[in-house]
Computed example of a mutant assay.
Amino acid sequence: MGQDPIILIVRTIGEIFAFIAILRFLLQAVKADYYNPISQAVVKITQVPMAPLQKMGLRIRGLDFSPLLLAFLVKVLAFAIIFLYLGAGFPLPSIAIFSAVGVFSNILTILFWATIGSVIISWVAPGNPHPAPQILLQLTEPLYAIVRKVIPPIGGLDLSPIVILLGIQLIQSQLARFLV
């Protein structure tokens, strides 16, 4: 039996927009190149809904958390529409928990795939000037640096991507019980 097309559309649009908002947060958190065309696209796509949220001043240590709030609100809205469509009412506490855990899980998913992408790029095309590999490397290098402080490269072999991937998988396996 297939899924209802309305639910599929609402959930897909919500997930894509939440993904872009989370990507905006991550790009500014790692201080990625603002003039990269991908960074510019992410900023332009999220600029209109971000404007009122940025006025709230959700800055901590110079980091703007309004993109995460936007992702959370988008997920809340998508879940609310789905619950109301199904006639299940509007269980706000459940929706808020699903949305918050979903945002955190999406952050981990982005970092997971960015790590895999950066590993592949380091094998296939190291130093590639294309904007996509540059963004992937800028997203993952701060994580690699943290792990390298604990586990330095051994004989030229950097184990930090493996540690990061295992850590993300461990955390996501614990989050799975809170996701819809």
Score class of each variant (00 low, 15 high):
1 M>S: 12
1 M>C: 07
2 G>P: 14
3 Q>T: 13
6 I>A: 13
6 I>L: 15
8 L>E: 14
10 V>N: 00
13 I>S: 03
14 G>W: 05
14 G>C: 02
15 E>C: 09
15 E>T: 12
21 A>I: 04
23 L>P: 10
25 F>M: 04
26 L>C: 11
30 V>Q: 00
31 K>D: 12
31 K>S: 13
31 K>Y: 10
32 A>S: 07
33 D>P: 01
33 D>R: 07
36 N>K: 00
37 P>C: 02
37 P>N: 09
39 S>F: 09
39 S>N: 04
40 Q>I: 13
42 V>W: 01
42 V>T: 04
46 T>C: 12
46 T>Y: 05
47 Q>Y: 14
48 V>A: 14
53 L>P: 06
53 L>R: 10
55 K>D: 02
55 K>L: 11
56 M>S: 08
57 G>E: 03
62 G>M: 11
65 F>R: 03
65 F>P: 06
65 F>S: 02
66 S>G: 03
67 P>V: 08
67 P>A: 08
71 A>Y: 05
71 A>W: 05
71 A>H: 09
72 F>K: 04
72 F>W: 12
72 F>S: 07
73 L>N: 08
73 L>D: 01
74 V>A: 12
75 K>G: 03
76 V>N: 08
77 L>E: 02
79 F>N: 13
79 F>A: 08
80 A>P: 09
80 A>C: 05
81 I>W: 01
83 F>L: 06
83 F>S: 13
84 L>V: 12
86 L>F: 11
87 G>P: 11
87 G>Y: 05
87 G>W: 02
89 G>V: 04
89 G>K: 03
89 G>M: 07
91 P>E: 00
91 P>Y: 00
92 L>C: 07
93 P>M: 04
95 I>G: 09
98 F>P: 00
98 F>C: 04
99 S>G: 05
99 S>H: 09
101 V>H: 07
102 G>M: 01
107 I>Y: 09
110 I>E: 00
110 I>M: 03
112 F>M: 14
114 A>P: 08
116 I>V: 15
116 I>C: 08
118 S>V: 05
118 S>G: 00
120 I>E: 10
122 S>W: 08
123 W>P: 06
124 V>H: 01
124 V>I: 15
125 A>P: 00
127 G>W: 06
129 P>S: 01
129 P>A: 10
130 H>Y: 14
133 P>V: 07
133 P>E: 04
133 P>R: 04
134 Q>M: 13
134 Q>L: 14
134 Q>W: 08
134 Q>A: 15
135 I>V: 15
135 I>Q: 02
136 L>E: 01
137 L>D: 14
139 L>C: 02
143 L>F: 12
144 Y>C: 03
149 K>A: 11
149 K>E: 13
151 I>P: 07
158 D>M: 07
159 L>S: 04
160 S>Y: 05
160 S>F: 10
160 S>R: 02
162 I>Q: 00
162 I>A: 15
163 V>I: 15
163 V>K: 05
165 L>Q: 06
168 I>R: 08
168 I>M: 10
170 L>G: 10
170 L>A: 15
171 I>D: 00
171 I>F: 12
174 Q>M: 14
178 F>H: 07
179 L>Q: 11
179 L>W: 00
